[in-house]
Design a protein around this nucleic acid. Structure first.
Lengths: 149, 149
DNA sequence: GTACGATCTCGAGTGCGCTCGAAGTCAAGG
DNA sequence: CCTTGACTTCGAGCGCACTCGAGATCGTAC
C-alpha cells in the first residue's frame, strides 16, 4: 500500500483563527501563555504560530468554560491533563463535574434572582396601572416594596 | 387621639448591618460612596451611620442585582431614581426590564454551556466504562472529543 | 528594493468590584 | 482616667481577565 496523500489539512494563522473564533489575537497569545492550550502550537520556521482545525473545537469549548465562569487557572489545569495524555480521564471528568455543579448553582441563583426582579416589575406595573386608571397624575404612591425602592 | 408612641424602630450600626447582610463594613461604606443607597444614611451626632430596618430589604435586593450581574453603575442609576421620589416609576421599571432580559440571556447561555459540559462528561464516562469493561488498563484512547480534549 | 500589513515578544495599562491599612474619634466598662 | 473595640475618612492595593503599545521581523505585491 502506498502512503495516502491526504488533502492538505486546513491550517490557520493567528489572525484567521481570531476571526473564526471571535477572540482577539492578543487573547489567543495570552491564552497560550497561560497554558490554556492542550498542546504546543507549532510554528513556522520564522516563528509564526500555525493552528490546526482542532484548535477551533478546543476554543469553542474554552469559550463555553470561560463564559460559564470557569477561571482561567482551572481551564489551565484541564488543558494540562489533556496535554499529559491518556490515563487521567478520571481527573478530567471530576474537574468537569465540579464545574457542572457550579453551573447548577449559578443557574439556580439566576432563576431565583429573576423571580425577585419579575416580582418587582409586577409590583411597579400594578402601581402604574392603578395610577393610570384611578388618579392620573396623582402622587400618593404607597411604595412598591416596603419602602423607597 | 394621642400621638401613638410606637415601639422604637430597630436601628442598626454599620457593624450590625454587615453581620446581618453578610457584607463587610468596608463594602457598605463603599456602596454608599458609589451612590447605591436610595436615601442618605442618617448619622449620630458624632458621625456614626445609623441604618433603619428598610436598609436590610434594600441590601437584599442589591445583593440580587449584583449577584445577577447588574453593574454597580446601573444599580446607582436605579437608586438615584428611587431617591428622586415618585413619578419616575416608568424609568425604574424599564431599567428592571432591561435587567430581566439580561438575566434571560445569561440563563440561556448557562443552560447551553451546561449541556456542552454534560455531553463532555457523558463522553468521558462512556470512555471510562469501555476501558473498565473491555480492556482494564488499556491505553488505546480514541479521544473523547474530536482531538485531545 | 521598498512599502505595508501581519506577525512576533514583552511589559505596562485598564476596568471592575471590592479590600485593606493608616491614623484618628468615640462610647462604654473597670 | 484609661483601655478597648467599633467607628470615621481617605487613599492605596489587589485579583482577574484581558487589552494595548512599542519596537522588531517577516512575506508578499509592486
Amino acid at each position: 500500500m502506498a502512503i495516502e496523500q491526504s488533502a492538505p489539512a486546513p491550517v490557520y494563522r493567528i489572525g484567521e483563527l481570531a476571526a473564526l473564533t471571535g477572540m482577539s489575537v492578543h487573547t489567543l497569545r495570552w491564552y497560550e501563555a497561560r497554558g490554556l492550550f492542550p498542546a504546543d502550537i507549532p510554528r513556522t520556521s520564522t516563528g509564526r504560530r500555525v493552528y490546526g482545525e482542532q484548535a477551533i473545537g478546543w476554543l469553542r469549548l474554552l469559550a463555553r468554560l470561560r463564559d460559564s465562569g470557569m477561571p482561567v487557572s482551572e481551564i489551565s489545569k484541564y488543558a494540562e491533563l489533556v496535554r499529559a495524555g491518556d490515563g487521567n480521564e478520571h481527573e478530567r471528568v471530576e474537574l468537569m463535574e465540579a464545574h457542572a455543579r457550579s453551573l447548577d448553582e449559578q443557574i439556580d441563583r439566576l432563576l431565583a434572582s429573576r423571580e425577585v426582579i419579575r416580582t418587582k416589575i409586577r409590583a411597579y406595573r400594578h402601581l402604574l396601572a392603578e395610577r393610570g386608571i384611578d388618579v392620573p397624575g396623582a402622587e400618593a404612591g404607597a411604595g412598591v416594596g416596603d419602602g423607597r425602592d
